[in-house]
Amino acid sequence: MSLQRPPLWQIIKPHLTVFDGALSLIVFLILSVGIVTLYSAGMNFPGRVEDQLRNILVAFVVMWIAANVSPQLLLRLAVPVYTVGVTLLIAVALFGIIKKGSRRWLNIGMVVQPSEIMKIAMPLMLAWYFQKREGMLRWDAFVVAAILLLIPGFLIIRQPDLGTGLLVLAAGFYVIFFAGLPWKILAGLFVAGAASLPVVWSFMHDYQRQRVMMLIDPTSDPLGKGFHIIQSTIAIGSGGVTGKGWLMGTQTHLEFIPERTTDFIFSVYSEEFGLIGNIVLLVLYLLLIGRGLMITANAPTLFTRLLGGAITMIFFTYAFVNMGMVSGILPVVGVPLPFMSYGGTALVTLGLGAGILMSIQRHRKLVQS
């Protein structure tokens, strides 16, 4: 007597229910907008769209794997992942690969960029740290947390990689803040940071100082260091209310916009879809952040609340910094627009973050049931 096989849908369904419906839909919509924009931006770069579709597939696989990993396992992995990440950063400082004047990569049989690991490892480690000290937090706990944060932050910034360093520092700071950092300490840090700006300026590389000066007045070197930001703001402004239309961006197709498939893809989007398109995109990002905060608010443990909150705010930081720099209100740093910019590393990191949020939501439902 043969047993009847269950319908195909019943076999597939348990593997698909790991995805949070709302979060998956929002990510899918942003990715779709990104592919449409990349098609226009990358017309002179054959294979970019195909490569990005492959990157998206890899990111969704990583997202699915992360969604299946329980928060309890993430808690156990926090210290080993952080330790490995810091060890690799030290190895980069000692004998890393130098490209374009920066020592950011390491050959361990394959070329890797360890700083990318820290974008997730940092909030994981600090969330684990505060979970272990739940109910007995004192000022010294925040000092230790700051040390844990500053070690990888310093190693990344000195590579130099200011953009990634700021993202890692921001991810760790969000955990510390959500853990209950007193406002008095926060105000003191702000004052100390402002007072230390002259010292920070003296330690900055020449190209970093130039980026700050171009933020203040890009017209001081319109054909040199200020060219990129001037052309970017022209593209954004020329889009007007409704945009010039898909594939019709003159700044884009006359190749005035720099790095138009990666860091400056928002300029391409703004020129072709205008203010209305920008509003739609901003709403999508607000929905992404709102869904992440909703998952965070309903998380059952301190660890998952801190981790979920930090990952959600990483999405915010990516979007805010990227849109700010291409609009001329922030210095230019290497921060991609989340789920839109071309590139595999950042997309996989973001997919991992989204998968962790889905894991938090899924296992909360399992606990409740």
Rank of each mutant, 00 (worst) to 15 (best):
A59N: 05
V61I: 08
M63T: 09
P71Y: 09
V58P: 00
A66P: 07
A78F: 00
L74M: 12
N55S: 04
V61G: 04
M63D: 02
L57C: 12
I56P: 00
V61S: 01
W64A: 14
A59L: 04
A67C: 08
A78V: 00
V69G: 00
I65A: 10
T83F: 11
A59D: 08
A66S: 15
P71E: 13
T83R: 03
Q72N: 08
L57I: 08
V61E: 02
V69M: 09
I56H: 07
M63V: 06
M63Q: 08
L53C: 11
Y82W: 12
L74D: 03
M63L: 12
L75V: 01
A66R: 07
P80D: 06
P71S: 05
N55P: 06
L53Q: 11
I65Q: 03
A66F: 14
N68M: 14
T83S: 15
P71G: 04
Y82F: 15
L74V: 01
N55E: 02
L53P: 04
R76A: 09
V81K: 12
Q72G: 10
L74A: 02
V58F: 09
V69L: 13
V62L: 11
M63N: 03
V81E: 09
R54W: 15
A59K: 06
A78P: 00
L73W: 12
V61D: 00
P80T: 07
V81Q: 09
V61W: 06
F60W: 12
L74W: 13
A67M: 11
L75R: 13
L53W: 12
L73Q: 13
V81R: 09
F60E: 06
L75Q: 09
L57A: 15
N55Q: 03
L77T: 00
Y82C: 12
R54Y: 13
L73S: 12
R54V: 15
L75D: 07
L73K: 11
L73E: 10
L73H: 10
Y82R: 04
A66Y: 04
R76E: 12
V69E: 05
I56N: 03
N68G: 14
R54I: 14
L75T: 05
R54D: 05
L77R: 03
V81Y: 07
S70W: 06
S70N: 10
V81L: 15
R76W: 15
R76L: 11
I56W: 03
N55A: 07
L75H: 11
L77D: 07
I56C: 04
I56S: 00
R76F: 14
T83W: 04
N68F: 10
N68V: 07
V69Y: 05
S70R: 11
L75Y: 15
P80V: 03
T83E: 08
L77P: 04
I65D: 02
V79C: 06
I65Y: 05
L75F: 14
V58R: 06
I56Y: 04
L74N: 02
L73V: 14
R54N: 10
P80M: 05
V58D: 03
Y82G: 01
L53D: 10
M63S: 04
I65G: 03
A59H: 02
A59T: 04
W64Q: 08
V79G: 03
V81H: 03
R76H: 13
S70L: 13
Y82T: 09
R54P: 02
V79N: 06
L57D: 01
L74Y: 11
F60M: 11
L74Q: 02
V79R: 11
V69I: 14
A67Y: 14
A67S: 09
